[in-house]
Write a protein that binds this DNA or RNA. Sequence first.
DNA 1: GTGAAAGCGCTAACAA
DNA 2: TTGTTAGCGCTTTCAC
Lengths: 349, 349
Amino acid sequence: MAPTAKQSFERTRLQDVARSAGVSLATVDRVVNRRSGVREKTIRRVEEAMDQLGYRLDPMARRLARNQNFRFLFILPTGTNSFMMQLREQVERTAEWATSQRGFIDMIEVDVFDAEALAQTLDQLDEAYHGVATVALDHPRVRVAIDDLTQRGIPVITLVSDVPYSRRLHYVGVDNPAAGRTAASLMGRFLARQDGTIGLLVGSLSLRDHAERHFGFNQVLAHDYAHLKMLPVVEGRDDYELSKALVTEMVENNPDLIGLYSAGAGNRGIAQALTESGKAGQVVWIGHELTPHTRRFLFQGTMDAVINQDSGHEVRSAARLLLAHCWGEPVLEDQERIRIDIFIKDNIP
Amino acid sequence: MAPTAKQSFERTRLQDVARSAGVSLATVDRVVNRRSGVREKTIRRVEEAMDQLGYRLDPMARRLARNQNFRFLFILPTGTNSFMMQLREQVERTAEWATSQRGFIDMIEVDVFDAEALAQTLDQLDEAYHGVATVALDHPRVRVAIDDLTQRGIPVITLVSDVPYSRRLHYVGVDNPAAGRTAASLMGRFLARQDGTIGLLVGSLSLRDHAERHFGFNQVLAHDYAHLKMLPVVEGRDDYELSKALVTEMVENNPDLIGLYSAGAGNRGIAQALTESGKAGQVVWIGHELTPHTRRFLFQGTMDAVINQDSGHEVRSAARLLLAHCWGEPVLEDQERIRIDIFIKDNIP
DNA sequence: GTGAAAGCGCTAACAA
DNA sequence: TTGTTAGCGCTTTCAC
């Protein structure tokens, strides 16, 4: 059925190509790495030999021989909301793995709401870094800082929150308008044949991801479920206490509240507000990010669905992209696509 | 803010440990790889030096020096249903990647419904293979074959469909009872405040994954949505034509059909049956696996939700696990967990 | 028990 | 423009 080991295992090496093309190792290396200083004619001869023998460069050997190391900085928001804490933990885990790939990851925290602080951090980046991954803030000052870094040859990856139109190497995160639409569709379907009012809570509309989720949610609800009335959006600043107060007020002022979408953090406050007002399990509540808290709320039936982005996947993806970029290696695009996960109580991992 | 490159980049090498412990490279190597022939005393001396210097073995160099190659066989079901075709395509893509990791993947097809055929394939496995990944059939004959291979030192990974109680190295696939429960919860919620009958279609109840999904679906529907009447399950053998016929009949005989759960393949047939009977978009239809077809049905509104397992992730995961096992390297467990994806029209990737 | 030395497949500095 | 050679960090034979 299958050939024996010896037969099919012989990878062709640079050496084989060199011999077959009648040139030296160094010359083949030059051709493979598209370095200058080789005659057109020789190049062709080598290339012929290469695809005749089906040559594939061995990335392991290449990395070893290059003997390079890379340093990356991950910039995450300060604050204690569960999702960001998860993200930080994932960075730590990933750092360990990256070490074995000759990648050294440092992490610092900045205030996400402060464009100036983030921009300065980027501007003053230690030149020892070979790349940056940052939970970004979409602000002109930040965009310029990203572009400058990119200009200087330091790739920037935006993580979780994007800065479109900047020259970042890659955005690693979900499609937030789509995430908002997803929440709206679920809300609409869960509320089939019911009339009433829907509440909307975000962290801050000046955060691009929250604004986009809000936008997507609105779009679908207004279009497909026009019979549901939407309250004006309120901003909880991803804060536990404030969110609680806002939701409590919302419930009191709107006896016909049947749905609540929270596009940001502060879920613990929301749960308390709903529970204390006796609305837990009555109001359809959809929020974001699977954390120990939201997990519990789902199980309890307080929360009906969680729209999630996999923080582990995101951080690993950012690290892989940065490493691949620095090593000049290809990327498996569809391994890096971040999914919009939907979790209900039955498919929690 | 950050130290310069030189400073923090010096990884400690085997050489450093050797010097510090006052022994040779070979001896440290023996200790690191737990090989025999080193005095207890020397071992301790080396180990001390190791964790004093914080030594971490370089997997790149290790792989290169070992100069080994591994061959793996992926066994997939014959047949043309979209999911299995996707799976085969992913194997091809992954094979390319694996080559760069010194892993050579072959693929063959066997009839999933034929336990004997699968068992024989396993029994007669070419000894050149270092590992197997198979879409398995949970049957005693197959279980024994898996255990025998494992006994012979050839690791087996069950893919998509598991054989519990066998000695397989790992199961790469979703929790199928949970997938069924997920489908049921969505069904129940989408049908809020409606009464009627739910149809159930599987490929075959002798396929473990289908049976488990059926089980999970039943469980939740009977418990949480007892007002909905469930029809007896029918088997479509994952066949387009047969599934179409069965659903057509189901619709005709049950004017009050309001929901349909298909735990197997054959979705194209179901879509046709629903469309031709004018029930498309009326009946809440939930099925499995995101394919070009189900994707279209979601967009059209014919299908309401798809429960998915990421075939790309599954195949890559199987390959990574096999490679890590052969190289004796650790695994990032939570990178290998296969999620139960829920897709509705808004979060399709 | 332990050590010296020759690779693994590639890169990079230096020669020619 | 091309070739020679000395590594990269580890494993593996073979000698002591």
